[in-house]
């Protein structure tokens, strides 16, 4: 019911998650799942929120992702129902897909990234996630993660017992050097969630820097509404 890519950007060291799901508000499941200079993780299929912080606490203590995954296994009576991925700051990556996770399901583990999914339309969705992620390997991490989700959707996306299921929620998170996110965008309950997130991302990206700048130098700031109108006119002129 969910497919995700988690990754460490090899150029910047930033960590991120792209996750799309039939479950509502999948972004709420990503709470505490990224920590700067430590790592990134997800637990899905049957989610377990405690795993996010536990996995990252273990990485922060010096455990390898492999060792951390073993702790999560021993700490959980229902490990066979979970799907888990972990990437650390050296790009070491591991994943687990329990035997009771609903088909089609699986994982692809690469250098510095993991793709995982359950209730997929077919096995090709996982390969598509990887291909989408790798398609612009020099791009910013948030672009690569969004490319991956779109490719996973286009390869068939999700499927339940009665046929195809829509992605109803999506989350895109990237953390850099701060103790708060660089980017954190969500759609919580809407069919066609990935397309909605793409539209939002296009609108959001040029405004993010504006809001940081106006906070640093409020005396010279252009009012937010005027900035929004300027941006709209510029986009109109370009199209």
């Amino acid at each position: 019911m969910t497919f995700s890519v988690i990754a460490r950007c090899p150029r910047s060291g930033r960590f991120g998650i792209g996750s799309a799901s039939y479950t509502m508000a999948i972004g709420a499941h990503c709470d505490g799942a990224v920590r700067p200079n430590v790592g990134v993780t997800v637990t899905q299929s049957a989610p377990l929120l405690r795993n996010n912080r536990l996995a990252l606490n273990l990485l922060a203590q010096g455990f390898t992702p492999q060792q951390a995954l073993r702790v999560l296994a021993e700490n959980d009576a229902h490990y066979d129902y979970r799907q888990i991925a972990i990437v650390d700051r050296e790009g070491a990556a591991v994943a687990h897909t329990g035997t009771h996770v609903r088909q089609a399901c699986g994982q692809r583990v690469g250098g510095g990234f993991v793709a995982v999914g359950s209730m997929l339309a077919n096995d090709k969705v996982l390969d598509a996630l990887v291909a989408g992620f790798e398609s612009q390997s020099r791009a910013d991490l948030e672009d690569r993660l969004l490319n991956a989700l779109e490719a996973g959707r286009d390869a068939g996306g999700l499927k339940g017992s009665k046929g195809p299921l829509p992605e109803r929620s999506v989350a895109l998170l990237v953390w850099g050097k701060h103790d708060y996110s660089d980017i954190d965008l969500r759609v919580d309950l809407q069919d066609g969630a990935i397309a909605a997130l793409r539209r939002m991302y296009v609108d959001y990206k040029p405004t993010a820097e504006y809001y940081e700048e106006r906070a640093r130098h409020p005396r010279n700031a252009i009012p937010a509404m005027e900035f929004a109108d300027m941006l709209k006119n510029k986009q109109k002129a370009m199209s």
Binding site: G27, A28, L49, R186, M200
Partner: peptide
């Protein structure tokens, strides 16, 4: 450590009504 409730509408013309729906 994690929230009991965390719901969002990130871009919508009637965002408060949309948050109520969600």
């Amino acid at each position: 450590d994690w929230p009991r409730i965390d719901l969002r509408v990130d871009m919508h013309d009637r965002t408060v009504a949309e948050l109520r729906r969600i």
